[in-house]
Nucleic acid binder design. Structure first.
Length: 577
RNA sequence: GCCGAUGUAGCUCAGAUGGUAGAGCAAACGAUUCGUAAUCGUUAGGUCGGCGGUUCGAUUCCGCCCAUCGGCUCCA
């Protein structure tokens, strides 16, 4: 049985073969199997347009139909080079020249096509049963901006037609939940293209959800002995020189503004400000740990081409926190943060989490023993929370310290990184953060950066897509809508008193008493994904009841106001739907 | 930033080989008083992303810019 990676890899070869048949002068870049499919990079005399994909795809289909055997050849490096020179494949020559001289060089061929490749591949082209070309894009040769840009063709490939269809359905589903689309439809947020790219405007409904999230976040922090900070949005250049950001983070910072002859920078991070508060008085070991959190809005310059809805923006609010502690407090602090993150994420509706430990990279600051201790603390904290299946990214840590990242899976199985817990061996040194220990001496403080959501904007985007706009009751900006059937005095009075009562009980809702048909009102409530429609007409008014229709359901339930209030109360406090 | 595509009414979109544009929904007004996903009619609404050029005339052709989309790259 051909494995999926071979299928995808072979599909990329078939793609290259098809392109060469159509454009014999094409130069090949690389063509690997990737998640869900494959791509191949080409240098072509013309710019491909989407319609070209159809042509290339049908050429691929005929290659598959020809059922060419895919054969492996082993050549010496010298012979391989000769072959690549003969075919004029300069990019391949470059790849080959970097392979060790001793190695046997393998080529894979099918029919008139032959490619430098280490394999593996399927045996015959007909083993590629289900594929589809997806899109064209530019891609730098070997990912380097100074290199020429090649044209990349992406495709997807699966073992069976069914699997391919299933994947396409998933893509459709993802498109339906796209937060940019839902953000508009549900009037949650906007990006104002004339007022600046990558800057988010939260509309009333989005801002309401954000308020609920923030309130919850703050309350949970207070429960865990955090204190909140508020710090400025701009700071003088010496701060960023001291922190080092002007050196190593400069390209992500907005240009400075001059105020009274001084350069001020919009903050790309909150840490230096928190450190200033820490350093504003002498700290004793008795004061530690300090857990300081801030919903801090930062500004980072992102290149225009990478901006993406709420997921990648230029101004965003981090749910930032710095834990400042002594070395022997580290382990429990991290353990507590992991528990905290887990609780918060689960409450927001994410139950599938994965943990990643990133260790010391090359060129890291701080001595190795500190790193080792820190990594041990991270491992121990994970173990304390009974997390043993975490992945280790060796050398994947930031240069200033190791970290734990938490990724969640959303409702359609996509992974997103949210929480991060990072040691910082850099800033405490640079800002000379100390505390007075039991011995009366100054000691270097430990600083841990930590975010649970990462950025509120991005988290909101993920949340919208996770719920496809159908937010659970406690998060819904409009939890109920009262729909009147007619405008009789009895109906109106009952509707108004119901609204009044529910609002005074702490629920969010509106009254739709427009002169419209019930069908329309129901439809609009459904389209807006309002959790409950409360229908009131003369019958209900007379019986002092409410016909309650739950989002997504076609049936109604007759309840009295008390029962509705209780139902809402339960959903609200349990934070489930 | 780079490659490619796109930008027309609040939204979704149509349209003219250069003679200043249309639909549906939404809106306003009027009629309808209605029982669980769209009642009917009327009206209004646009410097056709921005700036410049060619032209008698540009939303249409050309250039530059801005933004969006798909990638590349980046995420110390």
């Amino acid at each position: 049985m051909a494995n999926l990676e071979s299928i995808r890899h072979s599909a990329s070869h078939v793609l290259a073969q098809a392109v060469l048949r159509i454009y014999p002068n094409a130069k090949l870049g690389i063509g690997p199997a990737i998640e869900n499919g494959f791509y191949y990079d080409f240098e072509l005399p013309v710019s491909l347009i989407p319609e070209d994909l159809i042509k290339i795809e049908s050429e691929m289909k005929s290659i598959i139909k020809e059922n060419l055997p895919i054969v492996k050849e082993t050549l010496s490096k010298q012979d391989a080079m000769k072959r690549l020179q003969a075919s004029g494949q300069t990019f391949k020559q470059e790849l080959l020249s970097e392979l060790p001289d001793t190695e046997d060089i393998t080529f894979f061929s099918q029919g008139d096509f032959s490619d430098l490749c280490k394999g593996p591949h399927v045996a015959h082209t007909r083993d590629i049963k289900a594929f589809k070309l997806q899109k064209i894009s530019g891609a730098y040769w070997r990912g380097k901006e100074t290199n020429p840009m090649l044209q990349r063709i992406y495709g997807i490939a699966f073992e069976t037609k069914e699997a391919l269809t299933a994947y396409l359905t998933l893509l459709e589903e993802a498109e339906k939940r796209d937060h940019r689309k839902l953000g508009k439809e549900l009037d949650l947020f906007s990006l104002q293209d004339k007022a600046g790219a990558g800057l988010v405007y939260w509309h009333p409904k989005g801002a309401r959800i954000r308020h609920i999230i923030e309130t919850f976040w703050k309350e949970e922090h207070f429960k865990r002995d955090y204190e909140l900070l508020n710090t400025p949005h701009i700071g003088q250049s010496w701060l960023w020189e001291t922190s080092g950001h002007l050196g190593f983070y400069n390209e992500n910072m907005f240009a400075p503004m001059k105020i009274d002859e001084q350069d001020y920078y919009a903050k790309p991070m909150n840490c230096p400000f928190h450190i200033l508060i820490y350093n504003s008085s002498l700290r004793s070991y008795r004061d530690l740990p300090l857990r300081w959190a801030e919903l801090g809005t930062v500004y980072r310059y992102e290149r225009s081409g990478v901006l993406h809805g709420l997921m990648r923006v230029r101004g965003f609010t981090q749910d930032d926190s710095h834990i400042i502690c002594t070395p022997d407090q580290v382990e429990t602090e991290i353990f507590e943060v992991i528990k905290f993150a887990k609780y918060i994420l689960q409450t927001m509706g994410f139950n599938d989490m994965k943990y990643y430990l990133s260790t010391r990279p090359k060129g890291a600051v701080g001595d190795i023993s500190r790193w080792e201790q820190a990594e041990k603390a991270l491992r121990n904290a994970l173990a304390m929370e009974n997390i043993h299946d975490f992945e280790v990214d060796e050398g994947g840590g930031a240069f200033y310290g190791p970290k734990i990242d938490i990724k969640i899976k959303d409702a359609i199985g996509r992974e997103w990184q949210l929480s991060t817990i990072q040691f910082d061996f850099n800033l405490p040194d640079r800002f000379d953060m100390t505390y007075i220990g039991q011995d009366g001496q100054k000691h270097r403080t430990i600083m841990i950066h930590r975010a649970l959501f990462g950025s509120l904007e991005r988290f909101f985007g993920i949340l919208i897509e996770h719920y496809a706009g159908k937010f659970p009751f406690w998060l819904s900006p409009e939890q109920f809508r009262i729909l009147t059937i007619n405008d009789s005095d009895a109906t109106t009075a009952h509707a108004k008193s119901t609204l009044d009562h529910l609002k005074r009980s702490g629920f969010r809702g509106t009254l739709d008493d427009r002169n419209e048909k019930l069908g329309l009102k129901i439809r609009e409530a459904q389209v807006q994904h309002i959790p409950f429609a409360l229908v009131i007409g003369d019958k209900e008014a007379q019986a002092n009841q409410i016909a309650l229709r739950k989002r997504g359901e076609q049936t109604t339930q007759l309840l009295d106001l008390n029962e509705v209030t209780q139902l809402f109360q339960g959903l609200q406090t349990q934070k489930v739907n």
